[in-house]
Nucleic acid binder design. Structure first.
Length: 191
DNA sequence: TAGGCCATCTGGTCCT
DNA sequence: AGGACCAGATGGCCTA
């Protein structure tokens, strides 16, 4: 099953980790993130916390004196906000990567795993193309071609050795373009 | 309805 | 000590 182009979803960060499953508020207009933006809102994730509190982990500061508990709650909120920002940065990086990888279905957003896999094989195909061209133009003479090619071959051998130990199978350099091309088409077909 | 993908929360660990 | 990083858990959204 494939995820088609869907609008980006936004969630409101939880304002109060102590808020359990009791109060439910439908999603309002959601923009950005952060404690200030989340003021007065309850999110789906808060509901998740409530559900989790039943049989999952203990929430921080669930016991103990009030002052320490408030401190703990505040630290948790700040930590959550930092984690959200970190994930947003990561997602921005994924988006930037998507935009530089040529793929057939421009209307379909690549998933994260597709993005990484396609990027890896795209890089490999470009590398082998460059090496092929440079070694062809400089047959055995001085210049970067032969050295580059030797270096690349060494890398391939090392990766094959490491991958062999892990049971992975890496294609030969000349197979990268083929693999990349195949992947593009499989993504296009939505398989 | 099942399965894929995702956002978020959370606690543990590592790093500065 | 505090922040970054990571992985597990959970629930929502979407498509086939």
């Amino acid at each position: 099953m494939k995820t088609k182009n869907r609008p980006p979803r936004r969630r409101v960060p939880a304002q109060d980790p102590e808020a359990a499953a009791g109060e439910r508020t439908p999603d309002g207009p959601q923009q950005g993130s952060g404690l200030e933006l989340a003021k007065g809102l309850r999110s789906r994730t808060v509901r998740a916390q409530g559900a989790r509190a039943e049989g999952g982990r203990r929430r921080p500061g669930a016991s103990g004196p009030g002052g320490r508990r408030e401190n703990s709650v505040q630290r948790r909120l700040e930590s959550n906000e930092r984690e959200r920002q970190r994930m947003h940065k990561l997602n921005n990086a994924f988006q930037a990567l998507r935009e530089v990888i040529p793929h057939v279905r421009a209307d379909k957003k690549l998933s994260k795993i597709e993005t990484l896999t396609l990027a890896k094989n795209y890089i490999k195909s470009l590398t082998s193309t460059i090496l092929t061209m440079s070694s062809g133009r400089l047959p055995g003479l001085d210049g970067p071609g032969p050295k580059l090619y030797q270096h690349y071959q060494q890398q391939q051998q090392q990766q094959a050795a490491a991958g062999g130990a892990l049971g992975a199978t890496e294609p030969q350099p000349e197979g990268h373009l083929q693999r990349y091309s195949t992947q593009i088409h499989s993504f296009r077909e939505g398989s």
